[in-house]
């Protein structure tokens, strides 16, 4: 049977008022800042994700460490690490990750 799925109507996407800036800041931690510990971290769990309205604005909450931003070095790399972080969170899979000198995750294994 053919039917119409409940897709968003063209009117559902409205412009926002011009004086409203984007909410949040991709470069700032959503919550408590965790100290930089450059190098590899092994066997960690990611329990939360946070995404700003920015092409490279994803943060992950690493259990026992705190919020870490995924490195914005490239858009595709940021998306790829987001995919892995999503799987790790959803399926409770441990991750190994590398933290760069600025405290951002630049390599992620799940």
């Amino acid at each position: 049977m053919m039917g119409h799925p409940p897709v968003p109507s063209p009117y559902a996407v409205l412009d926002r008022p011009e004086d409203w800036l984007p909410y949040g800041d991709a470069a700032k931690s959503p919550q408590a800042v965790s100290p930089t510990q450059s190098g590899w971290h092994v066997g960690r769990m990611i329990s939360d994700l946070w995404s700003y309205e920015d092409a490279s604005g994803v943060w992950v909450l690493v259990d026992g460490i705190g919020w870490k931003r995924l490195s914005p070095a490239s858009r595709s790399g940021h998306t790829h690490m987001t995919l892995l972080a999503g799987t790790a969170t959803h399926d409770n899979l441990p991750v190994d990750f590398h933290e760069d000198a600025d405290g951002r995750i630049d390599q992620l294994i799940v």
Binding site: S74, M81, L84, I105
Partner: peptide, 28 residues
Amino acid sequence: RLFATANDANGWAYLENVGWTHLAGGPH
């Protein structure tokens, strides 16, 4: 295992009987 880095188009998969292989075909 899956591996990705902050670099552009740098995704890897560890396949059980092949080991680490780079994902081909560019960022998308």
